[in-house]
Structure formats: structure tokens, C-alpha cells
Design a binder for these strands. Structure first.
Lengths: 161, 161
DNA sequence: CACAACTAAATTGTGCGCAACTCAATGACG
DNA sequence: CGTCATTGAGTTGCGCACAATTTAGTTGTG
């Protein structure tokens, strides 16, 4: 708890006051919020050619990697519910990238499947990650460390929620 | 750039393929996206009592910290444009937390000011940051490091954008 | 078999984020 | 002084996120 390296908030005795925390908090929540939106902006640029939004890209990644799967599974992988996925998938269907059909075994379930066009789009998506990586200015090890830290936080937050 | 400390992704020869990157990318963008939403969930809980959403809370933080200021300045601090702020501020005004009035010197500018009620809300917001911090399961130094890293990334991404 | 509990999608409503645009006020320049 | 570019807010439109609800299909139990 030495205060010599952090000039800000250094004018206080041992115990951090609520006021300090309110300022710290400002920076933590804000920096994550801002980073998330900054990523959104760069992805938006990179995905414009493909005609995909960022969340749509996430869904396509899941489909490219794991093949046909029900909406529920996609939702579990991306932690998104049907309220978000249903309209999103409808847009992907309208764009001709996926099909949606009721499962035969369980009529409640809707299986999402890539169309030929959807599969082909993968080739054009290949250069995207490198663009993003270079835009972050991070090294690969740094990215991995960040990933790990974020994963830890997400799990902790999900449990608290 | 030795990779001995990071066992993951160590099974590859020098050059990572596009396919690898596509999977890596999946995890990077997704983990940030997920972390951001996980934070949103916890803040939602913590702010429910105050009747604030997470972005509204950010605006209130700025007002508590810096006092009355034009919409433009709030937007600069939070990197939000009028398209987001105008309706948000209107909701805060309807809730009786802020007032909005045209500046006398520059009639284009609208100054946002806390009401008595808005100022008072600060006391009830004080315990929020500690709740969030403990929900993350991170130590204060870890939070500071994360903050710094995210700041670096955001700057880099904003430049690329 | 009938009925209750549960599950998967979809729908509805609210709010955020952002691009594109409008409008009024300001400032710069000839 | 008049004109034109710029600036600050606001509006519109679209898509995402999420809570709450609805609908239809499934499963469990008496």
C-alpha cells in the first residue's frame, strides 16, 4: 500500500475513503466500458466488407467452429439469450448466411445451419483477427494474459450475479 | 518473446495459421465482450436501488466529480456522442436528478447541473464501488494494472479507428 | 391418461451505442 | 456587412442487451 508510485489519491491516511473508491470505480468501470466500445469500433470497420456486425460475427465464429447447432447452444457459448439471438439470427437468415429449422427430435429446438454462402464467408473473415490484433498494439502473450484475466473476472462476476 | 511461460498455443511451429488466429480472435473479442456484459449485470444489480442504469451512473459520476458542465464535455469525458447523451440526459432530467439549460454565452451549448436530489444521490452511491470491486475478486493492484492495460488498448484502438 | 412443472424460442418493451442527418448559433473571411 | 464553414444538440433509424412475458413442446408424476 505504499503511495509513492501513484501520485493520485496519495493525500490520504491508510484507509481508502469511499470518495477514493468512487473515483477508482469511475476509472475501472469506465475503462472497461470504453475498451469494449473501442473494440466495437475497430471490428465495425473490419467487418463492414463482410456485411456483419460484431455480435453477428461472434455467431458466425461459433458456427464455423462447431457446425450446426440449436439456438440454445449458441446462446450458452456466447452467453446470449433468445431475446438477443432470435432477431439476430433472423437477420443472418435474411442475409442468406444461415438457415433455421425446427429439430425433428425436439420440436422446441431450432437448429441453425450455415448456408453455402455462410460457409464461404469464412475465407473472407480470415484476415480480420490479424487486423484487430495489430490494432490493439499488443503482443500475443499480452493478449493471452488479458484473455485469462478477463475470463477470471467474468466468472467471478457471473457468480456474484 | 519466449513462450515458455504460456503453455497454451505452444504446440505450433513458428508461424501461426489464419485458422489459429480465427480461434484466438474468437476468444479475445469474446472475452472482452463477455466481461463487459458481466460487469453490466453486476452494476445493474448494484444500481437498481438508485434507479440508475450503468451509463446513467457514469454520467452521474462525472457530474459528482466535476460539477455542472456542458453536454459536450460530458461526452468527451465518457467518449459518448449527443445521440447517446441527449435521450439519456432527458431521462435523468425526468427523474429529477439533473437540469439542462442553454448557456448564456454560447446558446448552442447546454449546461447540465445536478439538482438537490441528484447531489443527494451521491451518498447512496458510495457503497457501490466496493460491491463491484469485491464481485470481481481482484485485488486493488490487479485492478489498477487492468485499468492501465485497457487504457493502452483503448488509445491504440481509437487511433486505428 | 391427465395435469403440473419445465424447457426452448419468440415476442415485447426499455435503454444504450452509433451513424447519418437536421437545426440553430457561432466564427472566419472576403 | 454578408456569406459560408464549423460547432453543439437534438433527432431518426438500426442493431444489440436484457428483463419479462407468451407460446408451444416435453417431461414427470399421480
Amino acid at each position: 500500500m505504499s503511495s509513492s508510485s501513484t501520485p493520485a489519491a496519495a493525500s490520504h491516511p491508510p484507509l481508502a475513503s469511499d470518495v477514493d473508491l468512487l473515483r477508482l470505480d469511475h476509472q475501472v468501470c469506465f475503462s472497461l466500458h470504453a475498451a469494449s466500445r473501442a473494440f466495437g469500433g475497430v471490428y465495425r470497420d473490419a467487418l463492414k466488407d463482410l456485411g456483419l456486425t460484431y455480435p453477428q460475427y461472434l455467431v458466425m465464429l461459433v458456427l464455423w467452429e462447431h457446425g450446426p447447432q440449436p439456438v440454445k447452444v449458441i446462446g450458452e457459448r456466447l452467453r446470449l439469450d433468445s431475446g438477443t439471438l432470435s432477431p439476430l439470427l433472423k437477420r443472418l437468415e435474411t442475409a442468406g448466411l444461415v438457415t433455421r429449422e425446427r429439430s425433428a427430435e425436439d420440436e422446441r429446438s431450432v437448429v441453425v445451419r450455415l448456408t453455402e454462402q455462410g460457409s464461404d464467408l469464412r475465407d473472407r473473415a480470415l484476415p480480420v483477427p490479424l487486423k484487430i490484433l495489430s490494432a490493439t498494439g499488443l503482443s500475443v502473450p499480452e493478449v493471452l494474459a488479458l484473455q485469462q484475466l478477463l475470463g477470471r473476472i467474468t466468472n467471478a462476476l457471473d457468480q456474484a450475479h
